[in-house]
Design a protein around this nucleic acid. Structure first.
Lengths: 239, 239
DNA sequence: GCCGCGCCTTGACGCAGGTCAAGCTCCGGG
DNA sequence: CCCGGAGCTTGACCTGCGTCAAGGCGCGGC
């Protein structure tokens, strides 16, 4: 693991740029941003390197500068439950700032990444002096709550088919031509959907047989998005 | 629905007492508490009355004074997924303060209850002026995040038996003599465990046959807590 | 080129648990 | 007192999906 290091002053302006772009700090004054940039620590992560593990005391919270970080729990049975994959510009672990206990989950880089570590003490201090920053933190945590609530929903969508349809619709909508490039292996997607790679394969196969999509390697092309949507609605409606 | 009303000044001191007792406000000065008590609204709820529904714009956040409030989502299939049952002294819906969107869930009284409505604008204003209050809100939301993460865990605990054991152990530990009085009907407990009343009945029946507990009406008496615990651990360990 | 190793796919099988249905108990009302 | 309904229990059945196992395919190393 390469040692984290304080950025040289030269880099401060670049850092301020990064900070300004993210949801969490986007409305702050340049002065405040400079203060934050002053105590932030840049940390590169290799693929599959852990940023923190469940139970460790919290160093602070994090902001993804590049790459992607998988936040997950491992259940007592050893299964990994993905909570969320955070990408460039997103912040996480704000909850660890305010809690006396350690991190409640694990964080691991999906690919080579760099994160900004925002140490606990100075950011809490700043929050105390900048009420609008406090508001932002509240807002950010509240959106994380919503993500979790959404996950709950997903888990209670019974069918694997329904969950997959849901996932496909959500992702195909934002892609031109319905072309979805899988970020990782199919086993990973299966894990996100809470199923096994075999079942995922079967379910995809069924949709393929119905000419709704084609799969080749790590690329899924959705041919008939409306059909998927009505199918999803039908699945939700019945039962 | 009886109209909510502002408490008379006579009641202010009582209110301050309630506020002081709760996690969220427990460390604040009497002065701040008085300010809060000044804008809080007392709202009684009949059994099964809804406090708010998913999507409604947020009035503010809430503090349970007496009774119990079930916060839940209803999935697209119409099933009710319990997120948490909040009881006396607990606060909820803080997330709605900071978010522009409406409530992400529903809240309904399990039994006749009274809640304190903490309106959005004045409490946000106060948070802006009292950094330590902001910290408390952050802490509170962070613990709610943990609850949700815990729920995720529970849902991925596969067995109904395992989930039930988990529930029993958690509840029997805090009860003298392992005597657990069910708050609602067994169907409700089943829902909390994410199963049907039939399966719950069967699973309880199996534990009863093993002389680990007895069930009579709404009372479950755990006879052999350690046995339940080792059974739980066995269930988690294997597979 | 060939081989070996992941990854994906497909088939076969077993099982937890959801659903339907029938009987039981308890309780309140007329 | 009888009756009806709500909730609980138990049985029978069926289905989704997790698991094991056996190929097929692509890819990198040698």
């Amino acid at each position: 693991m390469p040692a984290p290091h304080r950025p040289a002053d030269l880099k401060l302006t670049g850092l301020v740029g990064t900070l300004r772009c993210c949801q969490l700090f986007s409305g702050l004054s340049g002065e405040d941003l400079a203060v934050i940039a002053g105590f932030v620590v840049v940390q590169p992560l290799a693929k599959d390197e852990y940023l923190f593990r469940e139970g460790e005391p919290s160093r602070g919270c994090y902001l993804v500068q590049s790459g992607a970080v998988n936040v997950h729990r491992v259940s007592a049975t050893g299964k990994e439950q993905v909570i969320h994959v955070f990408r460039s510009g997103e912040s996480f672990a704000e909850a660890a700032l305010a809690a006396p206990t350690g991190y409640p989950a694990n964080a691991r880089a999906v690919e080579p990444s760099t994160v900004l570590v925002i140490p606990k003490v100075p950011i809490l201090d700043l929050i105390g002096r900048r009420p609008d920053l406090a508001m932002r933190m509240l807002g950010s945590m509240s959106s994380h709550l919503r993500v979790l609530v959404g996950m709950l929903d997903d888990l209670t969508l019974k069918d694997v088919e329904t969950r997959l349809l849901n996932w496909l619709v959500k992702h195909a909508a934002s892609r031109p031509g319905g072309r979805i490039q899988l970020p990782g292996t199919k086993r990973v997607l299966a894990a996100e959907l809470g199923t096994s790679s075999e079942t995922l394969s079967r379910t995809l196969g069924r949709l393929r047989d119905q000419r709704l999509l084609t799969v080749s390697g790590k690329v899924i092309v959705v041919h008939d998005l409306p059909a998927l949507q009505t199918m999803l609605r039908r699945n939700l409606g019945e039962n």
